[in-house]
């Protein structure tokens, strides 16, 4: 296990380094001059040059890269070009919404996928399987913003069970949580449907393995073998997909954030990008990269917890 952790950690560091370079270079080649955008079209070249110097944009590339990385690591991400406030504070404010939203959506995704996948695999080829997988197919096909609007219409506007949009902030925990329920459901439905399909096919493949036959010969029923042996063996592909879904949910919630008027990370990046607020884009994207790499590290650890062949190679 120690060796496994060590190699995974080294891979984690190397990926972070490589990703930060890619993010930095990508921002470098994006067209648009921040100083020009901030000052407007009528600014004189001298003013633009002065502002560039003030923002540190006239330094050589490698210096700016090191400066940025050092700042990122210490939480000093510079000032937003458009809002004139620290980037770190801007991102932190948005994370307070996006992280809990992602977490709730992931829990819901698992809560949808686990029973649906198990029921479908247990009744493989029968009516329950067809029904569950049919619903999953619809869940994947329906655009989530449309589903979100239906939720708002029925549960918020008609039944008044949840607010239709906006976010009151965590000073009112109950209200804040309530505001996140509908967006999380809208996010989780298609992801849960995808995960249910992955789980079902992994379970069905596992049920064809020799050790399932051995378990049946020991007296396990089909369903018993499914739960006692197949489920754990089918977890590896499910964990892989779940890790990828975290990334999709964290940054890809922008459409849902718009439907529910939520100040999330997705909207921040979108606005910053359209305003050429590249310093915000750079750090926000890097933060997403860190999150995704951290999640894949956690997924690797989870693999080893599930599979003894990884923690104790023969």
């Amino acid at each position: 296990m120690g060796r496994y952790l060590l190699t995974r950690s080294l891979i984690l560091l190397a990926s972070l380094l490589a990703a930060s370079l890619v993010v930095f270079l990508a921002i470098e080649v994006v067209p648009g001059d921040p100083a020009r955008t901030m000052l407007g079209m009528n600014a004189t070249p001298e003013t633009v040059a002065a502002l560039n110097a003030q923002l540190g944009l006239n330094m050589p590339g490698w210096q700016r890269y090191l400066h940025w990385i050092a700042g990122f690591a210490t939480g000093d991400m510079g000032m937003s070009y458009t809002y004139r406030v620290p980037v770190a504070g801007l991102i932190a404010e948005r994370l307070k919404l996006s992280l809990p939203l992602t977490a709730i959506a992931l829990v819901l995704t698992t809560a949808i996928a686990l029973p649906a996948g198990l029921i479908a695999a247990a009744g493989r080829g029968r009516a329950t399987d067809t029904a569950v997988m049919g619903i999953a197919q619809i869940g994947i096909a329906v655009p989530n913003f449309w589903f979100a609007m239906i939720l708002v219409l029925v549960l918020a506007l008609k039944l008044h069970l949840f607010p239709a949009g906006g976010f009151p902030g965590w000073s009112h925990p109950a209200a804040a949580f309530q505001a996140l329920v509908l967006p999380a459901v809208a996010l989780a439905l298609p992801q849960g449907a995808i995960l249910a399909r992955v789980l079902r096919s992994a379970l069905i493949e596992t049920m064809g393995q020799d050790y399932i036959r051995t378990a049946r010969a020991r007296g396990r029923s089909r369903t018993g073998a499914l739960v006692a042996h197949a489920l754990r063996n089918a977890l590896i592909p499910v964990l892989t997909i779940l890790g990828m879904q975290f990334a999709v949910l964290l940054a890809g919630a922008i459409v849902i954030e718009n439907v529910f008027a939520l100040p999330g990370l997705g909207r921040l990046i979108f606005q910053a990008l359209s305003q050429r607020d590249l310093i915000v884009v750079e750090s926000a994207v890097m933060l997403l990269v860190v999150a995704v790499i951290a999640v894949s590290f956690v997924t690797d650890i989870a693999y080893a917890l599930v599979d003894p062949r990884l923690r104790r190679p023969a």
């Binding site: 050790y211 018993g224 042996h229 599979d307 003894p308």
Partner: peptide, 27 residues
């Protein structure tokens, strides 16, 4: 099927050809 499950493993035992894959790798 329930009665068969009760017999299998208890009164009736079976072993298979391929020992490399006959055991659950995670148990």
């Amino acid at each position: 099927e329930d009665r068969m499950c009760a017999l299998r493993g208890d009164r009736l035992g079976m072993i298979f050809q391929e020992p490399m894959t006959a055991l659950d790798p995670l148990m």
